[in-house]
Amino acid sequence: MKLTLDGKSVRSSQFSNAGTLAELIRSLELKIAPERVIISMTLDGRALDQQSEKDKAGLPLGKLGSLEILTENVSSLARNTLATLCDYLPELSEAVEESVLLLQGSDESQGHRGLEILIDGIQMASQAWKGIACFIKIEGRGPDEVLPDISAFNEVLMMIAAAQENGDIVQICDLLEFELKPLLESWSKHAAELHSEMLNPAA
């Protein structure tokens, strides 16, 4: 099998203890940790996502043609993720307003679909915050000062779920507008402050 790591050929014999794809990936993760993490993999010319990685985990290495792996420095990845959040969080705030309008409109089912997509997006942002807090380095701030209040989001999410079970559209809209949107705005402000401190450490 041809193995490429960040554009450079690597002898798969270096990982002779790995007999399957899953074992090889795990060995590579241990080799590059803690400075770097895998950000993408291409197996036999096709992108390897979480599901396909799971499906092919047990394949013997002898049956694989090529595996291309890209990695990134964890600090750089955290900085890039923070920059992405600075753009993404305001979009989520706008999506809250759109969800409220849809739920209050004539097509309530479309509003629920929009709400589901919105919550998925916020959960992704929540997970991104945890990675940022672990790896980003900002002078004068510890991990606890980097991570915003995630528990508040979880509480609001539980209240929204309860309102959905009760079919209470009015309460759902109130929670979105008066609880979730301010929370996202606080996350957005926090992300912008961190990004500014990161770019201007002496400021």
Rank of each mutant, 00 (worst) to 15 (best):
V96G: 03
L89K: 00
I117G: 07
S99R: 04
E94L: 14
E94G: 11
S93K: 05
A125L: 06
M124V: 15
I122A: 00
S126N: 12
L92K: 04
H112E: 12
A125Y: 06
C86D: 02
L101E: 13
E91C: 08
E116T: 12
L92M: 09
L115F: 06
I119T: 05
D87F: 10
S93N: 05
L102Q: 09
E91R: 13
H112T: 08
D120A: 12
E116F: 12
S126Y: 07
S126M: 10
A95Q: 07
C86W: 02
D120K: 09
D107L: 13
E97D: 15
S93D: 03
R113I: 09
S99Q: 05
E97L: 15
P90N: 07
G111S: 07
L102C: 04
E98H: 11
Q110M: 13
E97P: 07
L103S: 01
E98P: 06
L101Y: 07
V100W: 03
E98F: 09
Q123R: 14
G121Y: 02
I117E: 13
L118G: 02
L103I: 06
L102W: 04
L101D: 10
E91H: 09
G111A: 07
E116G: 10
L89I: 08
V100Q: 02
A125V: 10
S106E: 15
M124A: 15
R113L: 15
E98L: 14
E98A: 15
S93R: 01
I117N: 11
I122F: 03
D120V: 09
C86H: 03
A125S: 11
V100A: 08
E108Y: 06
G105H: 06
V96K: 00
G121S: 08
A95M: 11
S93H: 06
D107M: 13
P90W: 02
Y88W: 11
I122V: 12
E91V: 08
S99K: 05
E91A: 15
E98G: 09
Q123C: 11
V96T: 02
Q110S: 14
S99E: 04
S99V: 04
D87P: 01
V96H: 02
P90A: 08
I119Y: 00
I119R: 09
S109F: 12
C86N: 03
G105C: 06
Q110Y: 11
